[in-house]
Write a protein that binds this DNA or RNA. Structure first.
Lengths: 254, 254
DNA sequence: GTGCGAAAGG
DNA sequence: CCTTTCGCAC
């Protein structure tokens, strides 16, 4: 089974690149972030073979899970505690999928920065109260944090910028310490695996990026992983218009 | 020689349809209205074989003349009396070309309505003071008036709407009475020859339009006309994105 | 319906 | 740089 996570930066302006993603990888599950629309405006037409679960608001945020698998049902408790549409948890037969768009944050001494850290804490609390590390969980999405200096193209240039600050990294580290494995880094200890490149200045052509999108799994799922990869080809192009994020894929036999 | 007039509704968002116009008719002169940009943003690249004279402002209005003919020079006196970029007069060797984007107007008891009528009067005054009906003049553009009830698809539905009001028609009639001939109607007394179709409701597919673009000439040029036609094919399509106006063409041996 | 542009978010 | 929304114009 192939699962992909992709921050689309508006699903309505990214229909062509998503069609390409489907055509190329034919994933069983597509988890999208930043769809930037309400469910009624979600372009289901581009997912003819999928069932789409959409949690979106106007203009900002919004997540969706499009899947070929049947008999799914929602977990809404965590999302219900939020004032923004940022998460969608689905229980499949053999595992729970958590699709999350973590807050962007901004810099320190800013309400948005505190909101981001609080978000991480709230999610960890929810995990501790409702799951154990022995449960089969796939948590993926845009975490808006580069875990270590190796996960950014230039730690000096990016020191103390959004996604690299110690407080943010600590928040992500604590979440992982619940009992999750960073699958891309697990499989690729030496490939940077950047998933985001600023639109400004053609950074993608110089591979000047950050690894801020992740697929995390609990240990029971670890030995089922066949492949984890970033599809740079869907970022490194001019047409169809790319998102600023590249899709991250996992092949896993659950 | 082929001369065309075309309200492009933004030249920057209409590069493909203009390229098609050139490819299809290869006109010696292209007169554009509503280019909606300043000269520095005018896409000269799509006119490799033409010299472009551009009179434009930001966002609104703006006219241009692109021509393969040499040794032209401007007449700016009329335009200089305006607060909006709506006209471009060029003296060619054997005739004067006047490219005009007349005000849209809006309904009665509106400043814009009065501005439109005043514009017509001012232009007529300028003509009387600087030209005679014996001078070779080609006046073309978007006049924003349908001269008679025959020039609209349904006079009842459109009674007292913009472009059909008696005051507007009288203003255009008086301008014509300077000594100009409505070439399309002269050549096609029984074809409606609509040049504008609302984007709303797919009116173009029902031929529900108005004839508000004209090529007028003084009598000395009348017997040189070979052909006058509206190219509906550049309006009646989905790609490249059409303007709401269709180009109007004249073949004339000046 | 379609265009522009300004402002906010990323 | 790129997206969304909004107001305005036609």
């Amino acid at each position: 089974m192939i699962i992909t996570t992709f921050n689309v930066n508006s699903i309505r302006s990214r229909t062509d690149i998503v069609r390409l993603l489907i055509e190329k990888h034919n994933p069983e599950i597509i988890a999208l972030q930043e769809i930037k629309c309400t469910p009624d405006l979600f372009p289901e037409l581009i997912f003819p073979d999928y069932k789409c679960l959409v949690s979106g608001e106007k203009s900002y945020n919004g997540v969706a899970i499009c899947t070929k698998l049947d008999s799914v049902h929602f977990e809404n408790e965590f999302q219900d505690s939020l004032d923004q549409k940022r998460s969608l948890f689905v229980k499949f037969e053999n595992f729970t999928l958590m699709n999350i768009y973590f807050p962007h944050g901004d810099l320190r001494n800013n309400d948005k920065f505190n909101y981001k850290l609080t978000f991480y804490k709230k999610l960890l609390k929810f995990l501790n109260e409702n799951f154990t590390p022995d449960d089969p969980i796939v948590m993926l999405g845009d975490f808006n944090v580069a875990l270590t200096d190796f996960d950014v193209y230039d730690p000096e240039i990016l020191r103390d910028t959004i996604g690299t600050m110690p407080e943010e990294r600590e928040a992500l580290r604590e979440l992982i310490n619940f009992g999750l494995v960073d699958t891309y880094r697990h499989v690729h200890p030496t490939d940077p695996g950047f998933t985001w490149f600023s639109y400004i200045g053609g950074e993608v052509w110089k591979n000047n990026g950050m690894r801020i999108d992740y697929i995390l799994v609990t240990r029971p799922l670890l030995d089922k992983i066949k492949r984890v990869e970033v599809d740079f080809s869907l970022r490194r192009r001019r047409t169809p218009k790319p998102s600023d994020h590249a899709p991250l894929l996992i092949e896993i036999d659950i």
